[in-house]
Design a protein around this nucleic acid. Structure first.
Length: 357
DNA sequence: TCTGGGGTCCTAGGACCC
DNA sequence: TCTGGGGTCCTAGGACCC
């Protein structure tokens, strides 16, 4: 392969809903919502809605109950992780099979692809065709000269399209848009930027990085300024991902009020977390217990622990944390996270998600 | 019957050490 | 009796992404 280095960002269209439609073709063209256990009377949220459902205002993260109210005749399906993982593996295999492709998987339904090409649009179209042929799934592709520009470009390509965003057209396309449209700027940060008089991407791009330090700190301040310009890394890293930790959490359909219920829930969560940890084969070095009290205040209890793989030892530490829970307050959610020791060769030189941007 | 579940990384502030 | 200044580690809390 020869040519100019490009970053492509591949993103499956309405992934979960599309996988469901594939195995139930009669759902094609209908408003399909995937979330929770598929029961809109339960506490759960929308994972993915088909375009037909989105037309009614349904969005990811919306309570399932609200979504069902917006689209009374929607088909609501439970999340089936195994099925999506299988589909994802097939998609990524098709992507990796593209000539000269360096692939960095970001999630079930998206990946960066580094490639040298004289004709990136043609390459992107060929990639889409290969994914479609192999999986019957449609994807959109963003083309960029940095990771950030490629990622943002994908949004303009949806559905099933290709879009290119480089230093040459970044400000023209993104300049007038609100900062929240950037990857990594959410409601909170865009609000804090607005307090500094920065509303648009163009204004953020023009900001002096040092001026953002007092508000956002020495790393994030300059980082946001760079984000506004679309600048940053263009290195796609195919190094296999090394998980920092594993966590499990559950939202209780009815709030817990008895200490014995909490104790039982912690044991159950810990068992599930330790299954994942055991697969990694690395010892645990820290624990975090997250407690959401009804209705919505969250408290976390974190503890560094002496490195160990002993299940009883880890469980005992988790129960110590659980003892810090305030009694007499109804509990809606419990989460347990185990942080694992990093393998020696991954401690340095590995590109983590954020600094890799 | 408003608010999932799995991740990552950053920052502030206190404790502690020299 | 008064109390610097730099550095590191740890905990708690936030923010964001898919």
């Amino acid at each position: 392969m020869s040519g100019i280095p490009w970053v492509l960002h591949v993103d499956l269209d309405q992934f979960l809903a599309a996988v469901e439609v594939l195995r139930r073709p009669e759902l094609a063209g209908k408003p399909v919502i995937v979330g929770g256990r598929g029961d809109p009377t339960e506490r759960a949220v929308v994972s993915t809605a088909s375009y037909e459902a989105r037309a009614f205002g349904v969005r990811s993260g919306m309570p399932l109950r609200i979504a069902a109210r917006k689209v009374p005749d929607a088909v609501i399906l439970p999340v089936d992780r195994e099925a999506y993982l299988e589909a994802s593996d097939a998609v990524m295999a098709a992507v990796r099979a593209q000539p000269g492709a360096v692939v960095q998987v970001l999630g079930w339904d998206e990946a960066f692809v580094g490639v040298e090409s004289e004709a990136p649009e043609a390459y992107a179209r060929a990639l889409q065709a290969a994914v479609l042929e192999r999986t019957r799934l449609h994807c959109s592709v963003g083309i960029g000269d940095t990771l950030v520009r490629a990622k943002v470009a994908t949004g303009f390509g949806k559905p099933a399209g290709v879009y290119r965003l480089t230093a040459a057209n970044w400000l023209e396309v993104m300049g007038a848009r609100p900062t929240k449209d950037l990857w990594g700027v959410g409601a909170k940060v865009s609000g804090r930027l607005a307090k500094l008089g920065i509303i648009t991407v163009a204004q953020l791009a023009a900001a002096d990085p040092e001026d953002l330090v007092p508000e956002f700190g020495p790393r994030m301040g300059p980082w946001y300024a760079q984000l506004g310009r679309g600048d940053g890394s263009s290195v796609v890293d195919s190094t296999p991902w090394v998980a920092r930790g594993h966590s499990r959490e559950t939202t209780f359909q009815r709030d817990l009020t008895e200490p014995a219920q909490v104790d039982e829930a912690v044991r159950e969560l810990m068992a599930r977390v330790l299954q994942d940890v055991a697969k990694e084969g690395r010892p645990v070095v820290g624990l975090t217990l997250k407690v959401r009290y009804a209705p919505f205040t969250t408290k976390t209890h974190a503890r560094k622990i002496p490195e160990t793989s002993d299940r009883d030892e880890i469980l005992a530490r988790a129960l110590e944390l659980a003892a810090e829970i305030e009694p007499a307050r109804p509990i809606r959610l419990l989460g347990l996270r185990a942080e694992m020791a990093m393998p020696e060769d991954a401690r340095e030189g590995h590109t983590p998600t954020r600094s890799g941007w």
